[in-house]
């Protein structure tokens, strides 16, 4: 059995779950990443607050129970933060259609790589300006820059329109959501699992 996420025990209802104190750990039989994503989407839509696990890296039920027990207070507080909110994923990609062919000299290669690093920093600064408080996801030069932010679902379309309008020329801005709070959960579990 694979754990898919957490909610408040009184809200778990029809979802398969195991109760741990005030929390319910939702689970499903072994399945594909897409099966787990579907379960997360259903939980996000039907529950007041849902903390998902990464569909691709979801833990086994017993291991997740062991991890949750000493962290119940922090996880309950996280569910309070998530109540009534979904996650908006914003992706910025600079238009690089003007880039030349692959470099043949070491100097050109290094200059191109230096430009990619500069573009990456500029995109990250741009996202921080557009979305204060957003959680920036790890990326690398030449790849899109992504960030997540928690919002009430009914505000997402207006935020998306504002972002498109404010996005600098030459930058492709894509917005999607509301999603289960995968980015928030990844940051939270990392913080709660930090080695001591």
């Amino acid at each position: 059995m694979i754990a898919v996420g957490l909610c408040r025990a009184e809200e778990a209802g029809e979802f398969d779950h195991v109760q741990t104190g005030p929390l319910a750990l939702l689970w499903q039989p072994d399945g594909t990443d897409t099966d787990r994503l579907d379960r997360c989407l259903a939980a996000q839509e039907q529950l007041g607050a849902f903390l998902p696990f990464s569909p691709r890296q979801a833990p086994k039920l017993a291991a997740a129970c062991d991890w949750i027990r000493p962290r119940i207070a922090a996880l309950s507080a996280a569910l309070d933060d998530l109540a009534g909110q979904g996650e908006m994923l914003v992706t910025l990609q600079p238009d690089t259609t003007g880039s030349g062919p692959p470099s043949s000299s070491g100097r050109d290669w290094l200059r191109e790589r230096t430009l990619q690093h500069a573009r990456l920093r500029a995109m990250q600064d741009c996202l921080r300006d557009l979305l204060p408080g957003a959680h920036l996801l790890p990326t690398s030069p030449g790849a899109p820059v992504e960030a997540t932010v928690l919002l009430p679902p009914d505000l997402m379309h207006s935020h998306a329109r504002t972002l498109h309008a404010a996005c600098p020329e030459g930058v492709d801005c894509r917005v999607s959501g509301p999603w289960p709070a995968f980015g928030y959960a990844a940051a939270l579990t990392a913080r709660l699992t930090e080695p001591t």
């Binding site: 696990f53 691709r56 291991a63 992706t91």
Partner: peptide
Amino acid sequence: MTAPDPTQDWPSPLAEISRL
């Protein structure tokens, strides 16, 4: 709004517990 990769590899330290 557009859909992202549904199997995006969100970092999950919790997964380390059970991953070989």
